[in-house]
Amino acid sequence: MTTLGMKTVTIPVRNREAVIAGTENATEMTAIQAMATRMWRILVPMGFMIIVISFIIGIINGINIGEFFGDAKIVREASPNHENFGTVQAIVTWLPGFKLFGVGLMLGGITMILGSILGNLRIAGANVQAAVGVDVILPQTPTTGKLFPPLMFMGLMTLMAAMFIGVWLSFVSADVYGNAITDINGAAAGSDLLADTGLVHAVKAWLTPMEFLGMAFLFSAITLALATIVTALRFQARRLVEIAEEKLS
């Protein structure tokens, strides 16, 4: 059915008295909204924990970098894996992907809270209509509402993939920087060491933009979720005016 310029559904009210008493709702959240209401409580603390862990690892790695620079250039570049430089470089390689995955989980949590807000708007709108004794008309999920959950999922998957690529690259990085820097600098054309050095630099060049792409999916999901909230609020405003006009006529 199309009402108020949107595709709508009419919900049958089972027990109007219970809705007025507040013991029952005129409708329930959709399955995705109900899931979002549960999931944000998991995603946001998980994301925050990852960011805090990244910060702690960053401090420890910073101390190790400081120790590396505690020696003269000639000393630190001549000895293989000086002050665990291979490990330091490996952490530098996987840590950005890990912390951005934490940020992504938090952005996913925000998207889910917005989904939960939409669910609550749906219930509140239905309850008000049931309480005043008119047909409970609700808008069908608009395109923006259908798009934002898969976009959020794609964002999280992209960030997860970037994190795993970072972990894989960190092993290559550890191998490369486990050698003395003089050996890395002196690697001959066609050698495995030079190829691996090139690989580390080449993958890093597109890995950061890939992480931003994941963030772009998540920000798109947030924008579309907010646009859906606007649609819901505007529908409620229109529906109130329509009910008032029905009463007047």
């Binding site: 690697a187 030079l194 090139g198 060049a205 597109w206 890995l207």
Partner: peptide, 17 residues
């Protein structure tokens, strides 16, 4: 652009330092 840059870097690292 990042992918193109990565390919260019890989190409550059075929030469010794």
């Amino acid at each position: 652009i990042g992918i193109a840059l990565g390919l260019s870097i890989a190409d550059l690292f075929e030469n010794a330092k």
